[in-house]
Design a binder for these strands. Structure first.
Lengths: 133, 133
DNA sequence: GCTTGACCTTCCCATAATAGGAAGCGCCAC
DNA sequence: GTGGCGCTTCCTATTATGGGAAGGTCAAGC
């Protein structure tokens, strides 16, 4: 199987498959023509990577998860710790974004949104520093 | 006022102030020694930028907001539209991250997290594609 | 006057993940 | 044997930020 087929089978672009190889995440054999060659097991790894990426794991974590997956003697505690740490990071980020959205939405509610120049949004952005930072 | 003072007064690193100048976001005068010179009005602009960044606006939006702020003939409708678009983007991103966190948390709940290798998290990541994509 | 140290300058590199494109070669079908 | 598609490598861009080197400037102190 060439890289194009592996891309279609895994849902990861050929571009990214090469990149993942360059950074040591996955590997591939080479045919006589120097084309990368993929077996079903390689496609399974690529799909694993995609699923982990879909859950927002950074590639560094994906690498660790992949190593754990390959290692039959792993302790599930290690996987769980990685997962829960990532859950915490995701929730922190989501909370931070929601807080920004809420602040901004409140500001926007007080803005007339008409042809006049008066705008509490700009006034707030121009305002003095808020001490809770 | 030199760049270091402007940095302390605005809460933006000197590094970033130079960068903002390079991309045309803000500007600065120059002294006889080629050092950048900042007045209070410049610091006010830098603070404006920081507040907008704190609300998660990308620099491209910050530039537009800054232009609106400088323009006394602006229509607040334009500011409001920018703000509400950004609120929508923030909420979409937050929702996406929360969904990831929830999925992963559910998976982790089913993982024993002990010394044994069995792990539903890895099994899920290794699993076949889910059709809702 | 000369040193020291803090500050400034520019320029290059790095991060994280993905994508676009160019130049060149391989392979299959017609 | 050529056209077209797929593969190769290498370079560039994105977004926002930071680190660091090599060198110029200025003020204080001896």
């Amino acid at each position: 199987m060439n890289i194009g087929d592996a891309a279609r089978a895994s849902g990861i672009s050929a571009k990214m498959i090469r990149h993942y190889e360059a950074i040591g995440l996955i590997s591939a054999g080479r045919g006589a023509n120097q084309y990368r060659v993929y077996a079903q097991a390689d496609v399974a790894e690529l799909r694993f990577v995609r699923h982990a990426r879909d859950l927002g794991f950074p590639l560094q974590d994906v690498k660790r998860l992949l190593d754990l997956w390959r290692n039959r003697a792993r302790a599930s505690a290690e996987v769980k710790r990685l997962a829960l740490d990532h859950v915490a990071a995701l929730e922190a980020k989501a909370k931070s974004l929601s807080a920004m959205a809420e602040s901004l939405r409140h500001l926007a509610e007080h803005c007339q949104g008409d042809a006049r120049p008066e705008c509490p949004i700009l006034e707030e952005l121009a305002g003095k520093d808020h001490c809770h930072g």
